[in-house]
Amino acid sequence: MKSMEFEKYRIEAENICVDYNGKVALYDATLRLKAGQICGLVGMNGAGKTTFFNALTGFVNLSKGKIRINGETLKTSQKDQAVAYVPQNEGIDADFPVNVWDIVMMGRYGSMNIFRSPRESDIQAVKNAIERVDLVDYSFTPIGNLSGGQRKRTFLARAIAQRASILLLDEPFAGVDIRTEKLISELFIQFKKEGKTILLSTHDMIHVREFCDLVLLINKTVVAYGDTSEVFTPENITSTFGGMSPDFLFGPES
């Protein structure tokens, strides 16, 4: 009975702690997400958002706690291509000699042979993913010649091609054009219908209210977690941001 309960969650992070050389970046953080849920990850710079993503992708080791993805260990979930990470635009080397097609194909590497030679099904998956993010005309454009929004869409296409059930998105709306923003929000609705689970970090309070069923407010640990309508209150936001009011941080419109 207990394992049935367990399998209902796509992401299950229990009391996780991460430290870098003894410096605590995140402690006692717990998060449980089910299929089809979209959760906003909100916190200051240095509050542990990236660390949280790093923990879920296995890029850093936990000093304490436990993570289960679809009921499996991280190692198994990596082999199953369960989690896809869409980086911040700043985290990408835009001078790297690759084009859109190359990057989206990287989403298929985990399912290929050791030489990573694409099969017909891989090529088809890449084509479809590029179509879904509306970049067909830019398929062979080097990454350096793309706009911020096009770059974002390229990495979203990589996540789509990977066919991951969980998407981790680091600031998906930062520095993108209106068209990309609209396309991303449409994709979110489709992903939700497909039963994918999305965890996204954002600085934009409007986006949280618009897309996120749940919100996780963090400041080195969980400040508040729950339904957006209940948890996303001015008081909680203020305490997440170290006593500063959200108006001061994001302008009065948020």
Binding site: N54, G58, F59, Q78, Q81, P87, M106
Partner: peptide
């Protein structure tokens, strides 16, 4: 290019 993606997909 992207070691984090490599790690994420089990490489």
């Amino acid at each position: 290019f992207d070691p984090r993606h490599a790690k994420t997909i089990g490489i």
